[in-house]
Structure formats: structure tokens, C-alpha cells
């Protein structure tokens, strides 16, 4: 019965026009970023390299390849995607309560746990499809527009360079990690959705939580650095970037296929899984005992 409900939930998701707003929004943002970088790519790179341009020759044209543009697109876009995920996941339960159709579902021979898990799985599939769409546009679109090459990622304190043949697997791993991060958002939006009777509340609440924790994280105030940030899911949601940080050997050159501090990524992944488990447990617990009044 679970898979029947899952199919129904997916059918409903993809029959709603608002679902395609997200896909459209992503396409627009990706194309805009790609166009901007096509025109002003050098300026964008100079943001990171300016202080070193006296000491090193900076091969701007080579840095500005499809892989670099894809990372830049993901960097800019993945901060905003939680809104698009909340738009669907935040509406999963409360939207039906608002429409009255939750009564229909609640009076059918399906358990509420099955219903919540099917809705969550449908949201997860939506997240994955959204990311696949993003991958197609951002990765393959950028490769088409800018070509392939070695990837350089500029961090706050260092530059990480990877050989072109050592990049694609990192993108796939990053997309998988981003799915996990966005699924955490979907789980949180669904949790709010279970507590609400209207669609807007959970969407706004989810976006607010993400914004507040992102600001707290960016402030880098010692008080938060040692208390909230190590456990804040927004800290760990950035884990996808970790796949583009390479380890270097004693001679200073990078090791192909390496990841800098892989255990930090494992820890982040586990923390995100923990959040998903927590949010879903609260959702199931509350929804099972909830009186469907609307």
C-alpha cells in the first residue's frame, strides 16, 4: 500500500503547476549565472585572486571552464533551493488540510504513518529530481558553454585545484550530499506542515529557520561557533562543498581522488540523517495523534 500512496503523492505533486515553478526558477537562475559568468567571468575570478595577481600568473580563461561555472552556480543557487523545497514539502500535509482532502486521506484504509512516510518519500523524490534538473543544467549546460578543464575552487584560506579527470565523481557525490541536505529541509518543512492548517505558515517558517541559522553561521561569532554552529544543520548542509576540497601530500601537490578531512563529511552526513530522523519522528508522532478537524 505504501508504494500505491507514494505513486499517488508523486502524481499529485507533478500535476500541480507550482511544482514546475521550482524547475522554471532553477532554469532561469542557472542560465542567468552562466550568462553573467560568460560575460564577466574574469571579474568574478578576480574577486578571489586579486590579492595574488602580483605573485602568480592567473590563467583566467582556463579557470573559467564548465566545472568552475557549475560550482559557482551551485554555490549561488543551493542557498535558495530550500525555499523551493519548502514550497512543496511545506504544503504536503497542511495544504491538504486546507483543501479538505486530508479528511479523505485520513478516512481511507491506510495508516497515518504510511501516509506521512509516503509523503516524505515523494518530497525526497521531488528534491532528487530538482537536483537532477539542476545537474543537467548547471553541469552539462556549463560544460557545453564553457568546456571542460581542471577545476579550481577558491576557499576563504586556500585554493583547491583538481585535475579534470578527477572532477566528475566529485560532482556526483556533491549532488548526492546536496540531496541529503535538501531532504533535511523537506523533513523540517513537513514537520511544520503537520502542525499547521494552512500552506503558507510551514513554508515561511522553514525559510525563516534556514535564514536565521545561515546568518548565525556567517556571523562567525565565537559564542555561536562553539555552541550552535557545530550542530546547526545549515553548517552541515554545505557539506557538498567538501567534495571539492582536496588533500595534499608532503611535497605540496594534491592527491588525485582525495578529499580533505573525509571524516568531517561523514560526520555532517550523519548529523543531517539525524535531523531527518528527528524531524520525521516528530512528524509521525504528532500526525498519528492529530485530530483532523478541517
Amino acid at each position: 500500500m505504501f508504494f500505491t500512496i507514494l505513486r499517488i503523492e508523486l502524481f499529485k505533486i507533478f500535476k500541480r503547476p507550482r511544482t514546475y515553478i521550482s524547475f522554471g526558477a532553477i532554469a532561469v537562475i542557472v542560465i542567468l549565472v552562466q550568462l553573467a559568468l560568460k560575460v564577466n567571468g574574469k571579474d568574478f575570478i578576480e574577486l578571489y585572486t586579486d590579492s595574488q595577481s602580483d605573485t602568480f600568473e592567473i590563467p583566467y580563461n582556463k579557470i573559467l571552464n564548465g566545472y568552475f561555472v557549475c560550482v559557482a552556480v551551485l554555490h549561488m543557487i543551493l542557498i535558495h533551493v530550500p525555499l523551493l523545497v519548502a514550497l512543496i514539502a511545506g504544503d504536503m500535509i497542511s495544504g491538504e488540510a486546507n483543501l479538505g482532502t486530508l479528511r479523505l486521506l485520513g478516512s481511507k484504509p491506510i495508516t497515518r504513518t504510511e501516509l506521512v512516510l509516503a509523503k516524505f518519500s515523494a518530497s525526497t523524490i521531488y528534491v532528487i529530481l530538482l537536483l537532477v534538473w539542476m545537474a543537467v543544467l548547471a553541469l552539462f549546460g556549463s560544460i557545453l558553454l564553457f568546456g571542460q578543464g581542471d577545476l579550481v575552487v577558491f576557499k576563504e584560506m586556500d585554493w583547491h585545484q583538481m585535475n579534470s579527470y578527477d572532477v566528475l565523481w566529485r560532482f556526483f557525490a556533491a549532488f548526492i550530499f546536496a540531496s541529503l541536505a535538501l531532504t533535511t529541509i523537506a523533513a523540517m518543512a513537513m514537520m511544520f506542515s503537520a502542525f499547521s492548517e494552512n500552506s503558507l505558515g510551514p513554508i515561511v517558517a522553514t525559510v525563516c529557520v534556514v535564514i536565521v541559522f545561515t546568518i548565525v553561521q556567517q556571523l562567525k561569532v565565537p559564542l555561536f561557533e562553539h555552541t550552535i554552529n557545530p550542530w546547526s544543520f545549515t553548517t552541515h548542509m554545505l557539506g557538498w562543498k567538501g567534495f571539492f576540497y582536496v588533500e595534499k601530500a608532503a611535497d605540496g601537490t594534491t592527491i588525485d581522488g582525495s578529499i580533505e578531512r573525509p571524516m568531517a563529511l561523514v560526520r555532517s552526513g550523519l548529523i543531517l540523517l539525524g535531523y531527518i530522523g528527528l524531524f520525521m519522528s516528530i512528524t509521525v508522532w504528532h500526525f498519528r495523534k492529530k485530530d483532523i478537524l478541517n
Binding site: 500500500m1 500505491t4 500512496i5 505513486r7 499517488i8 502524481f11 499529485k12 500535476k15 500541480r16 503547476p17 483543501l99 479538505g100 482532502t101 479528511r103 479523505l104 486521506l105 478516512s107 481511507k108 484504509p109 491506510i110
Partner: peptide
Amino acid sequence: IIERPDLYNYLTALENIQLFAKLSG
């Protein structure tokens, strides 16, 4: 039917009845 029919307005009648049929088990 509780108060008013619970239907998905963005689906057709056939899609709605299909959905009900599947949910009935």
C-alpha cells in the same frame, strides 16, 4: 463525504476517481 466532497481541484474527475479507487485498497 464529510461536509463537502473532498476532491483535488487541480485534477480531472477521472483522475480523482482513479485516486479514490487506488486509496480504497
